[in-house]
Every structure is written in structure tokens, then in C-alpha cells.
């Protein structure tokens, strides 16, 4: 029975990590399904799914990947995936919005904004945050339930840090698509 696994790997960044990982998986008779990879502050992270033929164990996959780097270079975690059947696409129960926070850094930004969003049943589906010096930037894609009052959310979010130099904006994702993508698509009219 084939092994369906999800793998995470972290290391200091250098040229050739993906090549080494892919070669190792291929050598174990595996096939990569999907990859999400990024480099943040000189650290490389990759999350990928793969299927392995035969009775390849999770330990064998982990050891094979660790061996693809220098000793101690790759930190690897491998888990069995519960299901490999793709789910039919589900309609989101809400509209997509983009949340941006820009301004002066402070320790409570992410905890406070994420707590507020969770309290309003707003799901974060993608999040990027970056600090440079004392400048902070957060960009999040969120799904806002249709029964929420957008203008009230915008007021509440701006009120999270009163009198502090942090600009908070919540804008419909269609605006970003319209102003940045070459083709204009609109579901209505």
C-alpha cells in the first residue's frame, strides 16, 4: 500500500536545497504532489506532500531527506496524511478581504489582531508578517462571514491601537485583483 505523506523541512538557506530534496524523494520511489516553500530571514522552509510506492516507512523518508543535506543541516518532519482524496471545492461562507497593518512594531500586534478576527469568526487563510528595525508589516487574506458589517469591522480594527502609529486597513480582495491583474473578471453583470 503506498504511503501518502506530508513533509516539512527547515534549514539555513543555500543554493540547491530543493534539488537535493527532490532527488532524495525520487530515489525513494516517491512522487511529489504539492510544494509550498519560502525563505524568511535566511531560513529556508518547505512544506510538501508526496506519495511513495510499496512499503516505504515514514522513518525511511525522514532519514533519506536528512541524508540529502550535510550532517545536522536539515530538520525534517514526516507525517502520514489522513486522506489523499481531493475534496470537492467548497463555497466560502463569506467574502475574501485583505487585511494590512503597517507601522511601528510592538509585541502584541499579531496576538491582538488574530484574537479580534477569531472573535468575529473571521478565518485567516494566508498570513505574511515582516519586521525591519521597528517597522512592522502584516498582510493577511481573510474570509469575512457575510453577516458581518464591514464598516464596523474597519472601525473596530482601527480602534485596536488608538493613538499608536499603526495603520490598519481591511479591503475587499476584488479591489486588489482588479487593480493588479491584467484580465478583469467580475462574477456579476
Amino acid at each position: 500500500m503506498p504511503a501518502h505523506v506530508v513533509i516539512s523541512l527547515m534549514s539555513r538557506d543555500r543554493v540547491g536545497i530543493i534539488a537535493a530534496v527532490a532527488k532524495s524523494i525520487f530515489a525513494l520511489d516517491g512522487t511529489i504532489g504539492a510544494i509550498s516553500q519560502t525563505v524568511m530571514d535566511e531560513y529556508f522552509t518547505i512544506l510538501l506532500t508526496a506519495d511513495f510506492a510499496g512499503d516505504t516507512s515514514l522513518d525511511a523518508v525522514r532519514q533519506g531527506l536528512e541524508a540529502a543535506g550535510a550532517p545536522g543541516e536539515f530538520h525534517v518532519s514526516v507525517r502520514q496524511r489522513e486522506s489523499v482524496q481531493p475534496k470537492p471545492p467548497q463555497a466560502r461562507d463569506g467574502d475574501g478581504f485583505v487585511l494590512t497593518l503597517t507601522g511601528k512594531d510592538r509585541p502584541d500586534i499579531i496576538s491582538r489582531v488574530s484574537a479580534y478576527l477569531a472573535g468575529r469568526a473571521i478565518n485567516i487563510i494566508d498570513l505574511f508578517a515582516h519586521t525591519r528595525g521597528d517597522a512592522f508589516l502584516l498582510i493577511g487574506q481573510v474570509v469575512v462571514p457575510r453577516d458581518q458589517d464591514i464598516m464596523q469591522l474597519q472601525i473596530d480594527l482601527k480602534g485596536l491601537w488608538k493613538d499608536y502609529p499603526l495603520a490598519v486597513h481591511l479591503q475587499h480582495e476584488d479591489i486588489f485583483a482588479a487593480t493588479n491583474e491584467i484580465a478583469f473578471t467580475h462574477s456579476k453583470n
Binding site: 503597517t102 508589516l137 479591503q171
Partner: peptide, 16 residues
């Protein structure tokens, strides 16, 4: 996929 700068530029255009 939108770039960070594209998102910030749009926000700036709308807000400022």
C-alpha cells in the same frame, strides 16, 4: 499571486 508591493500600492491609493 499578488506581490506585497502591489497590495501596499493599492492600499495607499485608496487610503491616502
Amino acid at each position: 499571486m499578488l506581490r506585497t508591493e502591489d497590495i501596499l500600492r493599492t492600499v495607499r491609493m485608496l487610503q491616502e
